[in-house]
């Protein structure tokens, strides 16, 4: 799994690419937790994720919990089918903040 990053209007946008499963999720979680030490708020872009399982969703939940503890904001974006369906049946679309595109997500973080 590859992780790309960019900063938009001072907000770190993290874009994992490929599969977020039981093989890759521990590494992705460690990466996010390291980034959260310097960035209390984060945007995660799912446009390049082909596949997510409950292992990947677990990372999103752990990240959301940590961001909340840190007083920051987590916004997810570009969650399209079939990934979106997995978020949906997990009930995650109602508990996590989700936006269509990275720019909108950054605006929410900076609001």
């Amino acid at each position: 799994m590859q992780v790309n990053e960019e900063t938009i209007d001072g907000v770190l946008v993290v874009s994992p690419a490929g599969r977020l499963d039981s093989n890759t999720s521990p590494e992705f979680e460690a990466h996010l937790f390291q980034r959260m030490e310097e960035h209390p708020s984060l945007v995660i872009r799912f446009g390049d994720v082909d596949y997510i399982s409950s292992a990947g969703l677990r990372v999103m939940l752990m990240t959301a919990k940590k961001v909340k503890q840190n007083g920051g904001r987590l916004v997810l974006c570009e969650i399209r089918d079939p990934i979106r369906e997995v978020f949906e049946i997990s009930g995650f679309l109602t508990i996590l903040e989700v936006c269509d595109d990275p720019r909108g997500a950054v605006e929410r973080v900076n609001a």
């Binding site: 969703l57 939940l61 909340k68 049946i89 997990s90 009930g91 508990i95 996590l96």
Partner: peptide, 22 residues
């Protein structure tokens, strides 16, 4: 457990929930 907010929500059991749903 499928309800609750970010603080209370646990991720356990989701895999079997997918199986039952799909």
């Amino acid at each position: 457990q499928l309800d609750g907010d970010v603080d209370s929500r646990q991720v356990g059991g989701l895999g079997l929930h997918f199986m039952k749903t799909l």
